[in-house]
Design a protein around this nucleic acid. Sequence first.
DNA 1: TAGCGCTATGTTATCGTGAGCATTTCGCCT
DNA 2: AGGCGAAATGCTCACGATAACATAGCGCTA
Lengths: 339, 339
Amino acid sequence: MATDDNRSLTLRDVSEASGVSEMTVSRVLRNRGDVSDATRQRVLKAAKELGYVPNKIAGALASQRVNLVAVIIPSLSNMVFPEVLSGISEVLEDTELQPVVGVTDYLPEKEEKVLYEMLSWRPSGVIMAGLEHTDAAKAMMRAAGIPVVEIMDVDGKPVDAAVGISHRRAGREMAKAILKAGYENIAFLGTKMPLDHRARKRFEGFTEALAKGGVEVMDQEFYSGGSALAKGREMTEAILERSPEIDFLYYSNDMIGAGGLLHLLDKGVDVPGEIGLAGFNGVELLQGLPRQLASMDACRRESGRKAAEIIAARVKNEPCDQIVELTPKIAFGDTLKRR
Amino acid sequence: MATDDNRSLTLRDVSEASGVSEMTVSRVLRNRGDVSDATRQRVLKAAKELGYVPNKIAGALASQRVNLVAVIIPSLSNMVFPEVLSGISEVLEDTELQPVVGVTDYLPEKEEKVLYEMLSWRPSGVIMAGLEHTDAAKAMMRAAGIPVVEIMDVDGKPVDAAVGISHRRAGREMAKAILKAGYENIAFLGTKMPLDHRARKRFEGFTEALAKGGVEVMDQEFYSGGSALAKGREMTEAILERSPEIDFLYYSNDMIGAGGLLHLLDKGVDVPGEIGLAGFNGVELLQGLPRQLASMDACRRESGRKAAEIIAARVKNEPCDQIVELTPKIAFGDTLKRR
DNA sequence: TAGCGCTATGTTATCGTGAGCATTTCGCCT
DNA sequence: AGGCGAAATGCTCACGATAACATAGCGCTA
């Protein structure tokens, strides 16, 4: 039991309690170097009895090694990023590295601030969502002298390494699939997106591929805030009222797509006969809806895993990929096909 | 621009570049002590040009202050915890404290390990989900000599402070509401719960209050893994096949409840006339379902906020509450009433 | 028994910063 | 001009650990 004299225990306390030098204690606790089994046991016993917890702050300063990986993402409530995180954790668990998460709320200035904070802890690497950052942020990442992996997007020029899908291509592929299924009056529904570059790129790729097929986006609707499911309903209702001839709705994420789906089913619309639907992300959460929404997997877990692998390899000075483009799979579900 | 000679910049580099002592640079960068405006500008300019980022590792060691708050939660993919986190962040943003998140996957041993890791960074406080921990974990928290707030539950004895709702009471209140609405053949559907103590306590409170009303839980069904929505459907189908006389289904969370709701609507069951439903958590996400599921708010954001406030107060040696019981509000929605 | 080589352990310096005190600078008053 | 006080700046050491090197102890062999 620790006799907490308000100041926390140090190696010295353990060394005194076990009658060996601090160095030996340090060696025992890190399993490093040769220590006789007798002393090892004695030290471990003393450490346990005192309730000693090593001070990594001091350790990191002395060894010049901080086994943290900064992971910077826009949001935790998006369902997308927790899955990326778990991919990262899975891989890092087999190494001595540990992820530390920072959240930017999609704000570039906050991203910059969070990055600065994180770099001030001298992490071994950085995993950052997206390719768009302030100049200052890019400069910091370059200057840090550590591996940096930008994830979830490969449409642009990374600071260092990048892993993810091409959202332009994702938009294009979805457009092609929709055209091929025979839909012609196509609308887009998304978030207010000035800051969500990936959604923007999907939209760009989407319109581009439609244009190639001689089709223009018939109408658009954007939202912000609120429950995505409810917003999906509202937006769908609004856009169909405005443009009743629409026969396909492409949503920028699955949640609003699900809202739209529920709305249409309520109204008794024939999905996908009368109106087809597609979302984006392939969120597992939504399995169990009355119809399975067409979607496109964003390779979230895989992005996380791959990014972590790159960091781990670079930390060990092993060779590794610089740019990894993953290929999202289109899932037709029940809402993207025409008879 | 940093001329990155592979080793990172220190105060000394900035001090040499600006012709003042390291101490003065340190003072400028922390806005502390008297520094003439001229030097301040010079130092800031030099720091910026070099791209200097202070080393918090060294700073923390020297000052014996680490402005981190360890936040330890079971999961990020649960929708519940991100909201707690944002409550915490909101409050801590106005202080110099910063949250750092650790995830336990509901495993006591992992919780212990994560706690140990976090304590080794000598945080200023700990916010930990739940009241059930290994003895070793409790000992560590006590020995750390820092404020500890256990959140999301107040049914038990906290190590230090606690903020949350009483899940026993939540279960009781829901049971009372269900009985009052006139339902009598009541079933419970939940997760396999040996490790989810809060769900267990809700269930205990639930059965207890039913018993007081002379009613016994008619049937139960548990699941693990998979998409909650889909599982909710499956479980609901299974339990109704087994016990067709059921007239109320109490789910341990909103997602499986939503799955059940969708299933019943598919089958053309009259909800809530024939069968009533309720979930738990009051997740905003689900607004937009065909019927609004009855639920009970777990005061997630508020728990986070309050916990953060306690930590902040304790760090400043201000007085504060030790135990805060929040009162969940029951939301009847469209699925808990009988005409 | 001297000497070699290994293992187990200790000693010293260092990591980058901040606290506390020491020193310098400068303006102002008598 | 001299002296005083406050503001500005610098110096030294400590923080708790680890790296790198030094040394003590031991068994074994020639």
